[in-house]
Amino acid sequence: MTSFIRIFFNSLQTGSVIALAALGIVLIFRTSRTTNFAQGSIGTLNAYVAAMLYSSWGLNIWLVAFLSILTAFITGIVIDTFIIRPAARVSPISKQIITLGIILIIVGMLPYLFGIDPMTFPRFIRTGGIPIAGATLTYNTILTVSVSLILMLLIFWFIQYTKWGLAIRVTASDEQTSKLMGVPTKTVTMFSWATAAILGTLAALIVAPTAGVNINMLLDVQVSAFFAGVLGGFQTFYGAVIGAYLIAFARNYTIFYISDTWGNVFVYLAILFFLYFKPYGLFGKKPTKKV
């Protein structure tokens, strides 16, 4: 029972990390029509910034978090203006490969900017927790999970109930028409990239204390985020988030109770099987197609 609850708390945190990354991927997929393979790398870049600010400059951790979110915002806008926007007419497959180019640039830049030594980043709240049935729910987990949940709820509220959210939704459903209707689609796309970069960076900061700050810190998270998107469906913004929590719980429990080497594979096969019957994910509908 103790381990059951401990895994529950862990899964909440991994689920939040995957959900943050997945929401970024879906946001970009809907507004820019591209699969963003660089989501993890962008987050990693800003995690490096955070680690440098914290360890070399000795700034307060909350200030560091704020500053790295600021740099994430800038990264997103720079990538959109200089790389994605000029590629508006490029075919969808080529656009995905452009994000591979972004990965290469970031990976190549990291050793120059931050050196080759691996860095560390501490938890936001170092110690303390609430004991529940033998397991401890640390204050840090409470903080990270609630911050990510509140942030994601805020984004959903924004998309659903504000004028700018409406602009995002119409851009996602048909960019050409919304441009003709006077929606500033360029700005929408730009802010989507900025938001996605912020979400990726938050995911990176939550992972950093356990995974360390290195080039591959978000590799697993990114792949899981793609899977979460497929499980929940790319047509809604909330689908991927629910998919992310489902994957985190399913994976952690199968790894613990069934097999630690094959847990992943079981979950992947189960999702593939599920996908065969619901090809557009949990919340997706079959899009209508004109002949």
Binding site: I83, I97, I98, L100, G101, I102, I103, L104, I105, I106, V107, G108, M109
Partner: peptide, 11 residues
């Protein structure tokens, strides 16, 4: 720098 260069080249 070859990594950065390849990335720029692809883009």
């Amino acid at each position: 720098v070859s990594f950065i260069f390849s990335g720029v080249l692809i883009i």
